[in-house]
Write a protein that binds this DNA or RNA. Structure first.
Length: 574
RNA sequence: GACUCAGUAGCUCAGCUGGUAGAGCAUCUCCCUUUUAAGGAGAGGGUCCAGGGUUCGAACCCCUGCUGAGUCACCA
């Protein structure tokens, strides 16, 4: 499989060979340990310029720009924390007669993107920039493909940014190198998860891991991915949720368990859905959903403060979101009443269907009561909740794993946390009555028979676990990707996933063989002879387009050569 | 899945009414020992996403396909 190399790629490969010929290994094995990160030097030198340590520092990273001025050069070196300018002076770097390290290795054979290590002393340039004056330079790794060059001027305006989303997502490694803010997003994502974990651990809850490959995909309503286990010869599903396994652990006697889980759903993709995504679910024994609301708002306030330097307010797409606890609590009935003047309380399926029609909410004949109410809420209310708001008490039909409301069995003890019109968290007083749970599953089976392809399966083992007894428990799930979007001001889930799902690239193999038309043309030519182009065109008898394409192809493949002389255009075999 | 937009040099983009492609950065050569979007002089670099069609002639018009983005639909 040969690939066509660009001019710049060929030159870099030539530099690679040249370095080896000079006895410099472009991919050395030895470790190279920097004394400081770039940011340490910048901040430290700013604080105390006369500190001894600045007379000898060691830095490693990627060359991001080269500014050569004859016998001296400046380059920006980027390490994992940031960038630092390096000053290369020919006679300081090469105090002896031999100036090859500067003239040949650096100027000729090192490129933007290469990794180097340098040692030297820190100083401030005439222009006031903190810089390392290098007294040694070590090649650490050669880069064979040119990076996109992104430039910034004094005012911070960005030029030639690497912005094509397709290329950025497919080549995230390049995106991360040249777009600083991308790295920031993922650092924040990590901080969010660390802050949550820290909050849970402080409460002595246990981080656990449960199966991703499940014989029955439970805990949510969604279409699963299916796979097959050869040795057992059974189908297995990739989990759509980990809820039922975590509850089994509460049955087993843990006080609180949580898991950051990769879930998989075989559904459409758009800017808020990726086939695999991360959900955090937590279950705590002897609690109810009222407790969980307080726990959730405190946890979120803690997370937001941690990633935003103590502030609870974040800006998302121009709107300000404030995560300071407590959050508003609105029951689903009140929400719908407020936004549509329709009271869902005590209504039959028919009445609800009629109401949907009146409101212009599209419904399907397969929808049950719960689904109808959900449609009304989704259409008329959901987008209205911008600031964090708990929507509580969902209809019983749409919450088959949730305990019935202690005051009204039509509803459940459930809340969802809405932020910016989107569902971010979902929580219950968990259903622990095994007989009720079995009946709810059976309701789901009826829905499935009606044609609802998302209705839940009956998980007999889960029911058995409940029959052994589960303490009253509250559970909560939160979408890490969507939360990260909100806290990093990104409108697309692809921006908060390192490697969002994409269609495969499937680049066609480049055809080196000649096609029929190209063969025809070359067959009309004898070696060492020139022909008038028009003559061959006539003989070939191809359409103008075909002739044009074929001739271009032949020239590209260096089979033929077209020459222009005073007497006209001529073609011959190359 | 529907609609809209886009795909041109390594990167960011121009390209008029159809006349075989341009700029900046990057690359190469030369000059330049504190520059910083370094500068000056010169040079090279293209499957104009792919395949058909219309035309004397297509990056441009038409059709089909591929890829991506946006909006909507679906999806807690």
């Amino acid at each position: 499989m040969s690939q066509q190399l660009s001019e710049q790629e060929i030159l870099r490969r030539e530099s690679l060979v040249a370095l080896r010929e000079m006895g410099i290994e472009p991919y050395p094995a030895a470790r190279y340990e920097a004394s400081h990160f770039s940011t340490d030097i910048l901040e430290g030198f700013e604080k105390q310029e006369d500190d001894e340590v600045w007379t000898s520092v060691k830095l490693s990273g990627r060359i991001m720009t080269k500014r050569i001025m004859g016998k001296a050069s400046f380059l920006d070196v980027m390490d994992s924390k940031g960038r630092l300018q390096v000053y290369l002076n020919r006679d300081i770097l090469c105090p002896d007669e031999n100036k090859d390290l500067y003239n040949v290795v650096f100027k000729r054979h090192l490129d933007i993107g290469d990794f180097i290590g340098i040692t030297g002393k820190v100083f401030r340039t005439k222009m006031g920039e903190i810089t390392i004056e290098a007294d040694s330079l070590t090649v650490l790794s050669k880069s064979l493909k040119p990076l996109p060059i992104v430039k910034k001027d004094e005012e911070g305006n960005v030029y030639d940014a690497f912005t094509d989303p397709e290329q950025r997502y497919r080549m995230r490694y390049v995106d991360l190198v040249v777009n600083d803010h991308v790295k920031e997003t993922f650092i924040t994502r990590s901080k969010i998860m660390t802050a949550m974990r820290e909050f849970f651990n402080r409460h002595d809850y246990l981080e656990v891991e449960t199966p991703i490959l499940q014989p029955i995909p439970g805990g949510a309503a969604a279409r699963p991915f299916i796979t097959h286990h050869n040795a057992l010869n059974i189908p297995l599903y990739l989990r759509i949720a980990n809820e039922l396994y975590l509850k089994r652990l509460i049955v087993g006697g843990f006080e609180g368990v949580y898991e950051f889980a990769k879930d998989f759903r075989n559904e459409g993709m758009d800017r808020t859905h990726n086939p695999e995504f991360t959900a955090m679910e937590i279950y705590v024994a002897y609690k109810d959903y009222f407790w969980m609301m307080e726990f959730t708002e405190q946890m979120l306030e803690h997370v937001v403060k941690t990633v935003h330097n103590g502030k609870t307010e974040v800006s998302f797409g121009g709107t300000k979101l404030n995560f300071k606890a407590p959050y508003a609590r609105v029951s689903m009935r009140d929400a719908i009443l407020e936004h549509t003047q329709f009271d869902i309380d005590g209504k039959s399926e028919e009445e609800l269907r009629e109401a949907c029609k009146k409101m212009g909410v599209e419904v399907d004949s397969t929808y049950g009561k719960g689904k109808l109410i959900d449609e009304i809420f989704g259409e008329k209310c959901e987008p209205k909740y911008i600031q964090p708001t708990f929507i509580t008490d969902y209809p019983v039909e749409m919450s088959p794993l949730c305990k019935k409301h202690r005051e009204n069995p039509e509803y459940t003890e459930r809340f969802e946390l809405m932020i910016n019109g989107k569902e971010v968290a979902n929580a219950y007083s968990e259903l622990n009555d095994p007989i009720d749970q079995r009946e709810r599953f059976e309701e789901q089976v009826k829905l499935a028979e009606k044609g609802d392809d998302e209705a839940m399966f009956i998980d007999q083992d889960f029911l058995r676990a409940l029959e052994y007894g589960m303490p009253p428990t509250s559970g909560m799930g939160i979408g890490i990707d969507r939360l990260t979007m909100m806290l990093t001001d990104n409108a697309s889930i692809q921006e908060v996933l390192f490697f969002p799902q994409m269609k495969p690239e499937n680049k066609e193999e480049k055809k080196v063989e000649l096609n029929e038309n190209e063969k025809l043309i070359s067959s009309l030519l004898e070696p060492e002879t020139s022909y008038a182009l028009s003559e061959i065109k006539e003989k070939a008898g191809l359409s103008n387009k075909q002739w044009d394409k074929s001739l271009k192809g032949l020239n590209q493949k260096e089979v033929t050569k077209v020459e222009k002389t005073e007497s006209g255009l001529f073609i011959r075999l190359a």
